[in-house]
Design a protein around this nucleic acid. Sequence first.
DNA 1: GTCTATATGACGATAGAC
DNA 2: GTCTATCGTCATATAGAC
Lengths: 232, 232
Amino acid sequence: MTTETVPLDRRHRRRLETIEEVLDHAVAIMTTDGVAGLSLGEIARRMGIRTPSLYVYFPSKHALYDALFARGAREIGQVVSDESAKLLADLDKRPQRSIEEVLLDAAAVFVRWAVEHPAYTQLLYWRPVPGFQPSAESFAPAIAMVEASKQRFEELQRRGLIRAGASIEEVQRDWVVLMTGVVTRQLANEPQAGFDKGRFTSALSALIDMFAHHYGAQPSTRTRGSRHARQR
Amino acid sequence: MTTETVPLDRRHRRRLETIEEVLDHAVAIMTTDGVAGLSLGEIARRMGIRTPSLYVYFPSKHALYDALFARGAREIGQVVSDESAKLLADLDKRPQRSIEEVLLDAAAVFVRWAVEHPAYTQLLYWRPVPGFQPSAESFAPAIAMVEASKQRFEELQRRGLIRAGASIEEVQRDWVVLMTGVVTRQLANEPQAGFDKGRFTSALSALIDMFAHHYGAQPSTRTRGSRHARQR
DNA sequence: GTCTATATGACGATAGAC
DNA sequence: GTCTATCGTCATATAGAC
């Protein structure tokens, strides 16, 4: 009995490790060849096994995509959640921070992760795989992230940084359009540029100013368009 | 001699017609199955020919994607160009129009076409096909469209609707992020909703207000956030 | 010139031996 | 749990019928 449970646990752990290894190779392939460029044969080749052996761990290629979707949603959710906690804690210590500063920090964390993890980003925010729809379980962390984001905006509204009359639903919707818009254009037009040098990631500051002006509570201390005025 | 040129012309015309037919079927398939779901076998099946026969007209699947990219870029370019001409002519007749109204018209034309032609939109604004890069010739109309858009913003700036100090390069960049951001979210999250009922296409008005407030010349006549205030 | 017949190699997927 | 063998489909290439 005792001799049975131990190897079972070990086998189980080993199985989970193998699954993680499959996912790691899949991400590496998708990063270079795009989400649609993933092939089970290439994963197996890199692991030194035959393609059919992968079916022990995943019943289909779509199931593999589903696991990758879940993994990506969990990871970006964690990154954003950590930043969000820091943001609110920091706001307690330095309440004089402008809404522009606060939102730019939050935006940069999301956009940086997205452009630096193009495989997950394509899977989460485009529709690159014909017929693939994430399962409810895999989609759950993505929903949780949106809910957390809305709660963060509500908190900012309570603290007087977001205009009192603003609909949080609309704030969240427009925020998502801006953030994923920047990420999509950067990855599709300049995939090699990276966060710091990208033409579209560099637009974040101007877009956040725009957003803050519209949904922020107090008029910005910065003159509208001061960034451009400098260039004249 | 005379008897030779006539059938050559006819044959040439017939060839072009066949090419158009191939492209039409390709668009239909991509519309239902996504860009990556296109298969030459399915095109041939629908045309009642064998797959290798397609290679008479296109040397490879990538060449077919290239022709589709060019077609899509020309079509949306034409749609936007027509609207742009109408917009400026209308502005001569009714110079009292606000920048919000003018831009919302322009935005609606682009976004409506994009969500109603998801096959072209995916090809033009995402990266759904591993290894596919449009040729310089196919890309040309897309560049022309961006140039025309910049010239339109310059004209609006000359007419005093866009703030004098604004960099047209930045105006165009942020405009593209907003428009393709809305389109991408609508097509990826709610592909079946259509322009009029979509959750993200419905955000256009608010996003244009935001944009106009930032880059427009005179303060808006509408109270900031009046749309939301109404909902209270 | 246009299309078919045929073949190649890669793919996702399944069945069954060990 | 991994293998081999196999299936059907895919994009692609070539040779040849008409």
